[in-house]
Computed example of a mutant assay.
Amino acid sequence: MSNNNITGTLFIVSAPSGTGKTSLVNALVRDTNHLKLSISHTTRAARPKEIDGYNYHFISEDKFKQMDMAGVFMESAEVFGNLYGTSQDAVQKMLDEGHDVVLEIDWQGAEQIKERFHQAISIFILPPSIDALRNRLENRGQDSKQVIDTRMEKAIAELKHYHKADFLVVNDDFEEALKSLKAIVKSNRMTTAKQQVINARLIANLLA
């Protein structure tokens, strides 16, 4: 049955750098029907293998500030000297089409969205340990020790905001963490409020 008569749910996934949230979110979107990934805008340079319009919309700082002043972004934040923002219209369009939408953003953006969209569901990804977090950052092979140290300091500060999320998922084993994320998304879609719209024809026939 068509899903166009049901409004989707907005999921927010936050975690410190190096926790593995990007890999988890990409796998979640790949494996889940009706779930779309919101592509954020950023002023940072693309990393190796990142594609403009797929991983991020890479734009200049001047362009970002113009869009921000025009009210384009539903949330925006500065992270490690780079600006990030989420397009209000792009997200709302997907929600109105009946898709669930997942945002991969930092805790600052998550708080901004929860203030405006109380029905959004927030998920915080935890690392299994501080040592594991540092090892993951070092194994990327992308950053100097100084940059890694800075990221670790920020990560520890970010972890203090975990309690503001609706759900917590520990990324110790990737597949288990992915199963947990899928369960959160699936359970939300199985609520009576949503199922009575998705299966309206079936319910009408059963009660006829």
Rank of each mutant, 00 (worst) to 15 (best):
N4D: 12
N4G: 08
I6G: 04
T7D: 06
T9S: 14
I12T: 06
S17L: 05
T22S: 15
S23P: 05
S23T: 15
V25M: 14
V25W: 07
L28N: 00
H34I: 07
L37D: 03
R47Q: 10
P48H: 00
K49F: 13
I51V: 15
G53T: 01
Y54G: 06
H57Y: 14
D62A: 15
K63Y: 05
D68Y: 11
A70Y: 02
F73G: 06
S76R: 11
F80E: 08
N82I: 10
G85H: 08
Q88R: 14
V91C: 11
K93Q: 12
D96C: 05
H99G: 03
H99K: 07
I113Q: 01
F117G: 04
H118N: 05
A120L: 07
A120W: 03
S122E: 04
L133I: 00
R136V: 04
E138D: 06
N139T: 02
G141Q: 00
D143K: 10
Q146G: 13
V147R: 00
I148K: 02
R151N: 01
A157I: 07
L159I: 05
H161S: 09
K164V: 14
D166A: 07
F167L: 02
V170H: 03
D172S: 11
D172P: 05
S180K: 13
L181H: 00
V185W: 04
V185I: 14
K186R: 11
S187F: 15
N188G: 10
N188W: 07
N188P: 02
M190E: 04
Q195V: 01
Q195W: 04
A200D: 10
R201W: 13
A204C: 03
A204L: 07
